[in-house]
């Protein structure tokens, strides 16, 4: 059964019918937002059943759209939190990918700006590595990008999409070894992205992120995960009810090959490891439970089939 990420948008009235349907079909609701009279569900559903969901939600005026970024956690790496980079373009991009279902976190570097003085510390490196992909938002000058990029990517193991002011060909030429994705002509700017051409640029960034993530998905598919992170999310929610009291917008953040559990590591890690998923298989058998560098959260990394010989 091939699960695909989609977004359901509809009225609050009888939306539980759609939610139940998704679960009955074997899908998972990753995020649920209720905004006044509207409900937005970001979910994974079986590819063959999308039409059925559309059919059933039609009388409720529900809308099902493809959302390739659902179930991913993206690090938007901004060079600083100064007025120079915020709210444009960093927040604009972070917000735009969020609209398409991704959970984006803004990672701002303590010493990101400048040319010679730019640097990346170990905490920043580890936090970026906890995400599925890192989107680097750099400046307008190719000289600076060429000079500082080797420093800023040191130790980064996740795919990088680089956004910078120069043209895409120039970016490709100056970055060595190459990164996974490039978007040119998006450097530092100090105006809101609201014109059609600026929105096209945001779409281009999303397209590039999607392309790189698809590649990563294909890699994962070659050695499938022992359990789907979305399923793990449901199990944790059921077995550790304390997660329901967490006020964070996404207490369980689904990633492509794991999930972030926003509970203190010291208190909950052992309990988490011993959760039974199915037929006596515990979470600790098929996933690694690490302390996250982000606050005192827990990071669960699901192991691939080749390491556990189990798929549930």
């Amino acid at each position: 059964m091939m699960l695909v990420p989609v977004t359901y948008k509809g009225g609050i009235y009888q939306h539980d019918i759609v939610e139940d349907l998704i679960e009955d079909l074997g899908g998972y609701v990753v995020q649920k937002h209720i905004l006044a009279q509207e409900v937005v569900l970001q979910c994974f559903v079986p590819r063959d059943d999308i039409e059925l969901i559309r059919e059933i939600s039609r009388p409720l005026f529900g809308e099902v759209t493809d959302s390739p970024l659902v179930g991913t956690e993206i690090a938007i790496v901004s060079m600083s939190l100064e007025i120079h980079h915020l709210p444009h373009p960093s927040c604009d991009i972070a917000e735009y990918v969020r609209r398409l279902g991704a959970k984006s976190n803004m990672v701002s570097l303590a010493r990101g700006p400048g040319k010679r003085i730019a640097g990346l510390n170990d905490e920043e490196r580890d936090v970026i590595n906890e995400h599925d992909i890192a989107v680097y938002l750099l400046g307008n000058f190719e000289t600076c990008i060429e000079y500082k990029m080797p420093t800023l990517r040191r130790g980064i193991e996740v795919p990088i999409v680089l956004c910078g002011g120069p043209d895409i060909e120039v970016l490709k030429k100056i970055i060595d070894p190459p990164v996974d994705g490039y978007v040119g002509n998006v450097g530092r700017f100090m105006r809101r992205t609201k014109e059609a051409d600026q929105l096209d640029k945001l779409d281009e960034i999303v397209a590039e992120i999607t392309r790189v993530l698809e590649k990563k998905r294909d890699e994962i598919a070659k050695d499938p995960l022992s359990v789907s992170p979305a399923r793990l999310m449901g199990v944790i929610r059921e077995k550790i009810p304390e997660i329901l009291d967490v006020t964070s917008p996404t207490p369980l953040t689904v990633q492509m090959a794991g999930l972030r559990v926003k509970l203190p590591y010291d208190t909950f890690a052992e309990r988490l490891r011993h959760i039974e998923i199915e037929d006596g298989i515990q979470l600790g058998d098929i996933a690694e439970v690490h302390p996250s560098r982000m606050r005192d959260y827990i990071l669960v990394r699901v192991l691939p089939f080749s390491e556990t010989n189990t798929v549930i």
């Binding site: 000058f141 000289t143 450097g187």
Partner: peptide, 20 residues
Amino acid sequence: CPEPLGAEYYKQIANDVLLD
């Protein structure tokens, strides 16, 4: 600026900031 594209971006930035 020695980089023509960079100059163009900075002209836009200067314009936006002074306008703001």
